[in-house]
């Protein structure tokens, strides 16, 4: 795809994880540096010249698709967006997402996230059929969540999943963004508060903000998705005064 004209004397060594979920090791590869080179470029060079079977997932190479997620020097990042020159003289260690099982080399099995998305009910339930009449100021709030590229870096860094392994109890920040997107849609009529309180487990999040820090799309996951959802759960499950007011406001059943 691009010229691989190596600048004489300008080489970098990348330490790339090779192996699977059970065993593996870092392998050092020398890569000639090209201006503006990103980690994914370097991995492509390694594939073309040294290790044709080096497994790495990628698609658009423009940070739009969220495929090339991994960990560089222990930080969750997109390979296509991480430039080699940002590391100065530091070593570069390239690893797969390690919250999920490693299939091979830099590819992890992220199917768990898609399975949770299948369990997300109710889906979008609009109040009226389209065409909708909505103002820009009304949709701005959910458009932020629609920026999500499903790279799962937030899932990778979330300690509830990563360290405590509570995959059966908490769906992770990415699914919280997805739920927020439905929950706060100005046309939506359904409520997902009970789901959040039970299976999706928003109560397990302790708002440590790590997910927000790694989001390549700059979505304010903690502030705009998770905390507002926690407050909605509090409305329903932790606020006796609100519950009492709801009971008062609920229309009395009229006898026919």
């Amino acid at each position: 795809m691009m010229e691989r004209s190596a600048v004489p004397g300008k080489e970098r060594v990348l330490y790339v994880y090779r192996g699977d979920d059970y065993q593996g090791e870092e392998v050092a590869y020398r890569v000639p540096v090209v201006p503006g080179m990103v980690v994914l470029d370097a991995l492509h060079f390694i594939q073309a010249h040294e290790a044709p079977d080096l497994a790495v997932r990628w698609n658009c190479k423009a940070a739009h698709c969220g495929s090339c997620s991994g960990e560089i020097n222990g930080e969750p990042r997109l390979f296509c967006k991480t430039r080699l020159d940002a590391y100065g003289s530091l070593d570069i260690h390239v690893h797969p997402l390690r919250t999920f099982p490693i299939i091979r080399d830099l590819v992890s099995d992220v199917s768990w996230n898609y399975e949770r998305a299948e369990e997300l009910v109710p889906g979008f339930r609009p109040a009226e059929p389209p065409p909708f009449h909505l103002q820009q100021w009304e949709v701005d709030r959910v458009e932020e969540f629609h920026r999500c590229i499903e790279c799962f870096l937030c899932q990778d860094v979330c300690h509830v999943l990563r360290e405590h392994g509570l995959f059966g109890q908490y769906w992770g920040p990415q699914l919280m963004v997805r739920i927020a997107e439905l929950e706060m849609h100005p046309m939506d009529t359904a409520s997902r508060t009970d789901l959040l309180h039970s299976a999706a487990g928003v109560g397990l999040c302790n708002v440590t903000h790590c997910c927000t820090d790694v989001c390549p799309e700059g979505i304010e996951i903690t502030h705009d998705a998770i905390i507002p959802l926690k407050e909605r759960v509090a409305d329903q499950h932790y606020d006796p005064i609100a519950a009492w007011l709801r009971r008062l406001r609920r229309p009395q059943p009229t006898s026919p």
Binding site: P130, P131, Q136, V139
Partner: peptide
């Protein structure tokens, strides 16, 4: 396009509240 809106797509809007 309208069908997408029914399934949850959110398009930019005109001042009249329609799809921009």
């Amino acid at each position: 396009v309208w069908e997408l809106e029914r399934w949850g797509a959110v398009f930019d809007r005109t001042p009249a509240g329609q799809i921009l």
